[in-house]
Design a protein around this nucleic acid. Sequence first.
RNA 1: GCGCCCGUAGCUCAGCUGGAUAGAGCGUUGGUCUACGAAACCAAAGGUCACAGGUUCGAAUCCUGUCGGGCGCGCCA
Length: 541
Amino acid sequence: MNAPSSDPVDVLHSAVTAAAWRLAGDEGVSPALDPSPRPEMGDYSTNAAMMLAKPLGKPPREIAAELAAAIEAELGAALEKTEIAGPGFINLFLGDAWYREAAASMSATGAAAVSPVARPERVIVEFVSANPTGPLTAASGRHAAYGDALSRLLKETGHAVTTEYYVNDGGTQVDNFAASIAARMTGDEPPEDGYKGTYVNELAERAATEGHDPTDLERLARTGVEWMVEGIRGSLENFGVRMDDFFSERSLYEDNLVDRGIQRLRDNGHVFEEDGAVWLRTTDFGDDKDRVLVRSSGEVTYFGADVAYHVDKIERGNDRLIDVLGADHHGYVPRMAAAIQSLEGDRAEFEAQIMQLIHLVEGGQRTKMSKRAGDIVTLDELTQDIGVDAARWFLLARSHNQTIDLDLDLARSQSSENPVYYVQYAHARIQSILRKAAEEGGPGSGDPLAAPVDPSEKALVSKVLEFPAEVHEAAEKRAPHRICAYASEVAAAFHAFYRDCQVVGAEGEGVQAARIQLCGVTAETIKRSLGLLGITAPDRM
RNA sequence: GCGCCCGUAGCUCAGCUGGAUAGAGCGUUGGUCUACGAAACCAAAGGUCACAGGUUCGAAUCCUGUCGGGCGCGCCA
């Protein structure tokens, strides 16, 4: 929006902004330009006059009249007319040519190119990071889908992104895990608070056949975690999520990063010792209480190691650290935020995205998700059950900040009531039309720019034109679910267009060519939208 | 007790840095295949946006309080 842009909507928006600035003598205001809610309200609407009402000290509708004239002067022939409506909205009515040129411009530059943000950042997104002591659950799948889609969105808007899985391969849970495997190897029951899932039996069997010693818990822990991480990596890849790195907690110790990290906190003067433990004074930065980094026993806490990990992320040159965390870890956020604020010099923005819970619903009942009883639904089971595309769609379609019920019966159905197929169907339908158009000999005669425009073509063009703004908004708000909604809207606009407008064999000079072009940019927009969600856009279904 | 998240149509949820008549999917009712894919389209019904105050030209959206639900408050991870 700052740089000159060939995006047709940007051009309109810039014209409105320029007119507002000229009128107000102030470059501070940033009026909105939105598609009009209803066709009788024109094509685009701006609230600029209302925004200027206070600074200019005049009634909005009076300002709107002056502003409308300025906008008309700014835009010239592209604009058919303006109208002032309601409390002071200015509605812009565009001519057919504007729509044809907009579609042609998208077709030429690649549909709706997304311009990079003004200030690109190096961002590291850490997500899933589930303990490597068991398979990924459906809940982890929600984290994975979200973190992956968010990363894709950030990349799309010009940021340099790395994705990382923090592997908690040290500490008590892993000891516990090893003890559980060992118990199964010797035919005993796992410890009371141990791991009892059937996958532990399988690991035990494998360990036995490979000649592991059930009394060598350290080696068993290392091997068991290794196998689990391999399994997790496979589950994620099968789910379309490829992490840039799996970062081992244990490697922090091996590479001496824990001492270094804690030393860095110490240098900044917020570390103290009490009761034989080493503390970080997180209360200096808004936390409820101070936190232990090193226990009186000499063991580093989970928090201590995690701080060191985050310091390392910063030292690797990242500007922004995004942690995708479960709702049950939200209490952890203030202390990590405090730790990072306590750093002086080389720092980064820390940001936590909290995932709310997910319930799987089947036959109208919530399925049990008790980890203890071992009857969790794994990510592998979920993707096998409903397919990767449907799983990703259903896990992403709702705000990550909202607890959701995932209706397995609906997700499983390969029929019309399943929303993911609605969007994919639109794409396949377009490809079918384009195939047919190619078979029947190309675009036909006439200048597509001069072809008249049907109302449902207008609706489709303007929906497709929203793509860059939607992507930016979804990225900024960390809200991939907006792309699901947007993709559905594009599909709906296409289906309406299909109802009203014949493509192959359309009457009129340039009409067929124009519509083929529109089909092309629509298909590309759907494909790119789904691509941001990690969902395929099949040419045939 | 304190903190975070949430409360919008029968169900599942969008919309929340304030904007025009609050939307979608599913479900319900009725209609549409002799044009390029009916996995589609059209129409109807369905709402005290939890409740009560406040802020203002304007509040589902912002502020305060109340009620209801989820999660969290370790020298656990």
